[in-house]
Design a binder for these strands. Structure first.
Length: 424
RNA sequence: GGAGAGGUGGCUGAGUGGUCGAAAGCGGCGGUCUUGAAAACCGUUGAGGGUUUGUAGCCCUCCCAGGGUUCGAAUCCCUGCCUCUCCGCCA
């Protein structure tokens, strides 16, 4: 959510900023609602004031033993007026709120103009793309050959876009997760968290998935409803919902491994083969809660922490700055890390690192106390995958494949594999 | 699942219809004292919002959440959520 004060003080600026996203903000409708809000809110508060003053007078008169009947007669219809005003105010505020929650975050000034992922800007590349002297197999063929990856079984148990991993591949995914957690804890200073995989609507509202993106989520029948988390970002960032964080506890740095659940509505026909796009996948997520002045640097740091995993795994990747058309709803600036997939002869997203600035914090009411002003102020929130474990698994399989279909285990994972150096 | 207790400001905890946004203590901040510190003493100390050029005034809202009763609700009624204790069951 954006700052409502900005909408009142500089609507033109708001429109300009939103236009960068191609978001057509209807200023006329907003101004009509806002004018009515102002009028009705002032009226409501005046009525409340009158009720309070008169009630006090009645209390005092009664205490003195005076006849209060004339005073009661005077306030007779005040209650009805007040109730009507409060109802209208509630309705108008709900409308404004609906409008505001549908508006995306402002983009950072460094975000380039562009329509879609083709306009993203490559910042850097790392690593040598492997050269193979034999026909390259993709992860599905490799996984089938070693009998460690079974999509038909996933479909039987649940549906399409689910997989069953077995044996060494299942262990490799677990090794990847352990390795990533350990690295972030010991080398990057994150603190490990374990969180619920079901979240309530307040939490999903806080991080921005609701109300606009409900169709992307799996909803669990319950009263009130639960949602399967689409990313650990949701439960972890909500740790600071309605919290005023102590200044000296900042920055808060959390790392968390969870499964992630996505309905992938609207992704029909996209990435249907293999483990690229699943309803359920494992991810290690990095979340930082920082003072506003530090969020730009924190964004660079967090991204480098995710990059460090790719480097240690010796996986070729590139870092991309998302353009205006590809940057997510709540984000002000996003770097994607894309890993090299030999079978597709292209880079594919394996991490997305975003600075949300105060957009989530305002919804979450996540604040810190500024010792200079003594006042609570909104924090900045950031997160990034560090990394998506399922996609890391397939990147390793494809980049580390041998002619016979066996897969060499990356050096840093061998210990996590109980000394196993290759999978066949 | 059964029975009971309870949710009040950063924390502990008073407050059962009328100047209660809320006693008191602790903590925090500022000061006096001191070479410095501690102790003691004095003062101060919740959040959100409206109006406004205003971190000035004035006003509104908030004592778990949502409804209700009343001129007036932290206080009474209903519903929900959460926490704790005991019993049962259970990974």
């Amino acid at each position: 959510m954006l700052d409502p004060c900005l909408f009142r003080s500089d609507l033109e600026y708001v429109q300009q900023q939103l236009a960068r996203r191609g978001f057509d903000f209807d200023a006329g409708t907003y101004q009509t609602l806002e004018a009515r809000r102002k009028e009705i809110q002032v009226k409501t508060q005046e009525l409340q004031n009158e009720r309070n003053t008169r009630s006090k007078a009645i209390g005092q008169a009664k205490a003195k033993g005076e006849d209060i009947q004339p005073l009661l007669d005077e306030v007779q219809n005040l209650g009805d007026q007040l109730k009507a005003a409060e109802t209208e105010l509630g309705e108008i505020q709900a409308k404004i709120n609906e409008l505001m929650t549908g508006i995306p975050n402002f983009l950072d000034e460094e975000v380039p103009e562009g329509k879609n992922e083709e306009d993203n800007i490559e910042i850097s590349t790392w690593g040598e793309k492997p050269e193979f002297s034999f026909p390259v197999k993709d992860h599905v063929d490799l996984g089938t050959q070693c009998q460690g990856m079974d999509f038909e079984l996933g479909a039987k148990i649940a549906s399409a876009r689910f997989v069953v991993l077995k044996g060494a591949l299942a262990r490799l995914q677990r090794a990847i997760i352990q390795f990533m957690l350990d690295t972030h804890i010991t080398e990057h200073g994150y603190s490990e968290t374990y969180v619920p995989y079901l979240a309530n609507s307040d939490s999903l509202y806080g991080t921005g998935q609701l109300p606009k993106f409900e169709q992307d989520l799996f909803k669990v029948e319950n009263d009130p409803a639960f949602f399967l988390i689409p990313t650990a970002e949701v439960p972890v960032t909500n740790i600071v919902r309605d919290v005023i964080v102590d200044s000296n506890e900042m920055p808060l740095k959390f790392v968390c491994h969870t499964p992630c659940f996505r309905s992938e509505a609207g992704a029909y026909g996209k990435d249907v083969r293999g483990m690229i796009r699943q309803h359920q996948f494992e991810k290690v997520e990095l979340v930082q809660i920082v003072k506003p002045e530090n969020s730009v640097q924190a964004h660079e740091d967090l991204t480098s922490h995710a990059e460090n995993i790719l480097k240690k795994l010796q996986l070729p990747y590139r870092k991309v700055l998302l353009c205006s058309g590809d940057t997510g709803f709540s984000s002000s600036k996003t770097y994607d890390l894309e890993v090299w997939l030999p079978s597709q002869n292209t880079y594919r997203e394996i991490s997305s690192c975003s600075n949300f600035k105060d957009f989530q914090a305002r919804r979450l009411q996540a604040r810190w106390r500024n010792s200079e002003t003594g006042k609570p102020e909104l924090v900045h929130t950031l997160n990034g995958s560090g990394l998506a474990a399922g996609r890391t698994l397939i990147a390793i399989m494809e980049n580390y494949q041998n002619e016979d279909g066996s897969i060499t285990v990356p050096e840093v994972l061998v210990a996590y594999m109980g000394g196993m150096g290759s999978i066949s």
